[in-house]
Design a protein around this nucleic acid. Structure first.
Lengths: 214, 214, 214, 214
DNA sequence: CATGAATGAGTATTCATTCAT
DNA sequence: CATGAATGAATACTCATTCAT
């Protein structure tokens, strides 16, 4: 036993292709970064930010602990990067090409089903965003991002109220109800680790619409 | 259904109010314990379990760091004690003397307004319970306690569905919607640190009832 | 009896020399571990196990406090590693290639002088083993190791008694006398921090032989 | 040489038995002090000085933790008090009314058997004295006490050597051998928690005498 | 006198981060 | 670039000692 811990031959002795690539070989270089983000997301969801050790993330990502600091300035920067990434992806899915001129009923359905789609594809990401909402370690940019999205949603609600399609009342209240209910639905199926049926998503949508319609 | 959660819950698990008071000044003894529980609740809500240092709790409670360990075996025991305490208090308020024979509409209103009352009086406690739901450091007793409460709520829903008063569908889904919406409402006002008006609580109740009624 | 204590002793229990050296500079890696062991040995002898703080060990070893935990799981694991190491080294020196067929007189002299040699080279190690004998924090493996060595010595005594070369009487008694006297001699010179002359070692050997010979 | 260790240097150092009892009820007051000394002796032997917590001592002694500080200034003062007490008692038994004019053989036997008697009656005390020999927390008085006893023994040896009754050689060596062997014998029976038979004590005495006689 | 609740300095241990290889 | 050994500041927890009752 000369070398008790052989120097872990990382399968691919690949020549680093620089994380910042503008084009083709997006995979190789970005791989490590993605691995880290994925591992961290999962662990942060399971154990929280302070409950997760950086070496644990490195282990799960299959990289050295020091490597994480090549891609992120600090643990805090990492959690902020995840938050930003997920929030942007969520915004893309939920609000991209939003049918601004469609009837409220259709807007509501569109939003709900898009959110449902996102949450089904990325349940961890959704829970992550919920948990890290308003945490002290979120940076200014993420706080602003959060605010902007809130405003967007708020705007939709106010507009719909103005059209007389939604119940009158504090927009915050209506949004809180709808978003809260959505999270509640997500949780109810995450807890038993079993995705919701499509029919149930539609039922939920119907229920919530009846709740907030004028 | 007068006492939904019989006091069987391991009273022995906590030293309760260990300090032996001779007689008159009953306050002094239990005070320290309460101070610690209060301070910890607040900090756990703000920074999470792992994000809160024991000496911080001690500082905020106005006691020595070592004193915490006279009342609780460990930081984990402390968070479990808080969880248990709050959950029991919530159960007391929400489910104590529950109108089991009343019409569903009234049951719903009763439950909602009681929860609203609790959340208004103890907003931190409510957020605390939400955050610590299903955390790894919750002990078996608390997991069981959580389950029992879920079953109680579930039972109410199933009964009401059987009576044809609520929409058909997975009880978990309905409960998730209602509880989620409730949490969403709480959050919408906790975030701006401003309690909800009584009228808004009633509005919210009305909205949710319309959402789930048959 | 060439290898009285085969190296079966849980090599895996300790990471041995975890640092993986490429090849040449084999020293650097194991150095830290040795430094820690040496520093700890000295301090444990001077102040005892509980009287020695881990940072003190780190200071004396010239490493960071955290580094100790890269090499040893805990303070207890450290003291056990030292005990094991010293006991094995002692066994090697004292019992390695033991003249099992030689006359008792020569066996006695051999054993005594080897022990004397060891104790002269590693006086601290000897005192360490004496002090930590039968302490609560010794692990099962070390307890077994201790027992095995006792049995070996005991066997030698019993054999010699059978040959009629030693006084009759409880082997434990004879061993206690010889080993106790040996320790007494060591102490008498450790206390004044001055090694014993070779002539005195021979005198002591002569004295003890006359004590136990038939 | 009737009283080899004149009593009470620094009588004032300890409050002795402060509790003022006129005469009859001697028990109650001094009891506590004795209980503490006894409990501490036992625990110090089992777990060492630093390994024993003051409240543990209090528990075992059946007194409050604060009470210990009524009788001893500190934990260190307590261990010193025990050491002093035991050493004095040992001196009393071993050296009281020492047969200074008797033949060396008889002196040797007397000393050995008295020590054996003491060690049989107070095995814990004996082990305690061995373990705490030369510890940093022994105060000056105890160090001096230890030295005085050593000198006494040394004197006996030198005298006997001068008479030609003992082997020539460093007195320290001879004493180390005899005292070490004695301790070895004690240990050999303490380890198996079984007192030595009277016959074995005599055998050991015979063996050691043959070892050191001229 | 006796107590034991309270304390905070001190302990073992962990972990984010750095840096030599 | 990637690594993981090394670090020391920070953490949970302990314990000698005090002091109000």
């Amino acid at each position: 036993m000369t070398n008790p811990l052989p120097p872990k031959t990382t399968a691919a002795a690949e020549p680093a292709a620089r994380p910042s690539q503008a084009s083709i070989v997006k995979k190789v270089g970005g791989d490590k970064r993605e691995q880290i983000l994925d591992a961290a997301l999962e662990l942060f969801v399971e154990r929280g930010f302070y409950g997760t050790a950086v070496p644990e993330i490195a282990d799960k990502a299959g990289v050295g602990a020091g490597t994480i600091y090549r891609y992120f300035d600090s643990k805090e920067a990492l959690v902020n990067a995840i938050y930003r990434q997920q929030k942007m992806m969520f915004a893309q899915v939920a609000l991209g090409d939003f049918p601004a001129t469609a009837p409220t009923r259709e807007q509501f359905r569109t939003l709900w089903m898009r959110m449902a789609k996102f949450a089904t594809l990325h349940p961890k990401a959704f829970v992550f965003m919920e948990l890290h909402h308003h945490q002290r370690y979120l940076d200014a940019e993420n706080v602003a991002l959060e605010q902007r999205m809130l405003d967007l949603f708020s705007n939709v609600v106010v507009t719909a109220q103005a059209r007389g399609d939604l119940k009158v009342g504090p927009p915050r209240l209506l949004m809180g109800i709808v978003m809260g209910a959505f999270v509640g639905v997500i949780r109810s199926c995450v807890e038993i680790d079993q995705p919701l049926e499509s029919a149930d998503w539609k039922l939920a949508e119907q229920i919530l619409w009846e709740a907030v319609r004028a």
